[in-house]
């Protein structure tokens, strides 16, 4: 996945492309079955022993459970080189993991957004850092 070379996530441990696919980095509790995103943000079922939490990647694809179009620029510390406003925000449901995750919608005509449509995880280039790396965030796009 050469096109992912020289890219770096603005904050680590959220989005992974080492397998050749862009996937969200989650953690699963093998005691209560809950998936977490971000993976450090534990939300165990009450009474859970909290044993056996392991890092996992969420599925590549999910379904659009909700969305909005934001018409005003997101204030700092959010930062992009290109103007992205208005931008879509999706809440994408990963069915097997029983979790919905928010993300900016990219590469998608916002007029075509529909609840239930299939979305896949990707990245959005935000800006170039001092090391000339492309700083990215996770995002979703229509399949």
């Amino acid at each position: 996945m050469d096109k992912m070379a020289n890219k770096v996530a603005r904050i680590p441990n959220l989005v992974d492309w080492s397998t050749g696919e862009v996937r969200l980095m989650s953690a699963k509790c093998n005691s209560c079955g809950t998936y977490f995103f971000p993976k450090e943000h534990y939300q165990h079922r009450p009474g859970c022993t909290r044993e056996g939490v392991e890092d996992v990647l969420l599925a590549k694809k999910g379904k659009l459970a909700s969305y909005t179009v934001q018409y005003y620029p997101c204030p700092a510390p959010f930062k992009t080189e290109q103007k992205i406003t208005p931008y879509g925000i999706g809440l994408v449901e990963f069915e097997d993991e029983k979790i919905q995750v928010t993300g900016i919608i990219t590469n998608t005509d916002l007029k075509t957004l529909k609840l239930g449509m299939e979305m896949e995880t990707t990245i959005l280039e935000m800006y170039t850092n001092e090391e000339k790396q492309q700083v990215v965030t996770w995002a979703f796009q229509a399949v």
């Binding site: 996530a9 603005r10 904050i11 959220l14 971000p38 943000h41 909700s66 969305y67 909005t68 934001q70 005003y72 997101c74 204030p75 510390p77 959010f78 930062k79 992205i84 931008y87 925000i89 809440l91 928010t102 993300g103 900016i104 609840l115 935000m126 965030t137 996770w138």
Partner: peptide, 22 residues
């Protein structure tokens, strides 16, 4: 996680309400 939502999520408060409203 507030740091993540502002730096990478692009998520001012009203977006949360809009997602639930839809």
């Amino acid at each position: 996680r507030d740091v993540i939502r502002w730096k990478m999520g692009g998520l001012p408060n009203p977006i949360y309400w809009a997602l639930e409203c839809r």
